[in-house]
């Protein structure tokens, strides 16, 4: 989350850039390049593509700073440009699949209560966190997320933006952000549960 100081620094640098002070652009590039690269990489999963996107975004900031009016935070503007450039790179935004909630929830009886046992594998995630296999499983699961849910998950849970800020970047209402995030987390949980359940039951036998 940007602090007040970071926001003030952004505003000062933007102002300087608009006044034609070139060093300000250099500083902005240094401040933002990791954020831009990380988001672009998580969307494209490709180093070259992410590098191209980062370069395009920096160039857009440089050329279009005069069109930035400060209605939203500068960082939101940068995130928006990054998303657009990443989508252009991917060209075809995946057709919007629909994530059905029922597929991701356990089975309920007619009164809405769960009837089956549910394995709690949450302790396995710590011991498996840094294994390459886990990393791969997670990356695959995220790649499978529908675009609408994925972008909310990346901005909120990975980049750590607040719900409000994600709404600002994506021009979505707070309830819409929350519901997409919830769906994303449910989707990922479902995808990861097979893997972790298996690990848990293997561990129990040992």
């Amino acid at each position: 989350m940007p602090t007040k100081e970071e926001k003030a620094l952004d505003e000062r640098l933007v102002k300087e850039m608009k006044e034609g002070k070139l060093e300000a652009f250099d500083q902005i590039a240094l401040l933002y390049q990791r954020k831009i690269y990380a988001l672009a990489f998580n969307l494209t999963r490709n180093q070259m593509d992410a590098q191209d996107v980062a370069q395009e975004v920096l160039l857009s900031i440089f050329k279009k700073i005069h069109t930035f009016q400060g209605k939203s935070a500068f960082s939101s503007w940068v995130y928006r440009i990054t998303l657009n450039a990443s989508y252009m790179k991917l060209r075809t935004k995946k057709k919007d699949q629909f994530v059905s909630l029922d597929d991701m929830l356990p089975s309920f009886n007619n009164s809405g209560f769960q009837q089956e046992k549910l394995l709690d594998w949450s302790n396995s995630t710590d011991s498996l966190l840094f294994s390459n296999e886990t990393k791969e499983i997670i990356e695959k699961a995220v790649a499978l997320l529908p675009e609408k849910e994925k972008v909310v998950f990346l901005l909120r849970d990975v980049e750590g933006l607040s719900t409000e800020k994600v709404g600002e970047v994506l021009e979505l209402s707070i309830p819409a952000v929350k519901s997409r995030l919830h769906r994303a987390r449910l989707f990922l949980r479902k995808k990861l549960s097979h893997y972790f359940e298996e690990y848990e039951s293997r561990g129990a036998k040992k």
């Binding site: 998580n42 992410a50 549910l118 966190l129 886990t134 849970d157 990975v158 949980r189």
Partner: peptide, 29 residues
């Protein structure tokens, strides 16, 4: 069962965000 769901929902979020936020820009980039 709801406790299990809550715990696994939470740890999914944690493990997924930790894994993806590790990304650093490679030196060459």
């Amino acid at each position: 069962p709801c406790i299990s769901f809550l715990n696994t929902y939470k740890s999914t979020t944690e493990v997924a965000s930790k894994t993806l936020s590790e990304i650093e820009i490679p030196e060459v980039v």
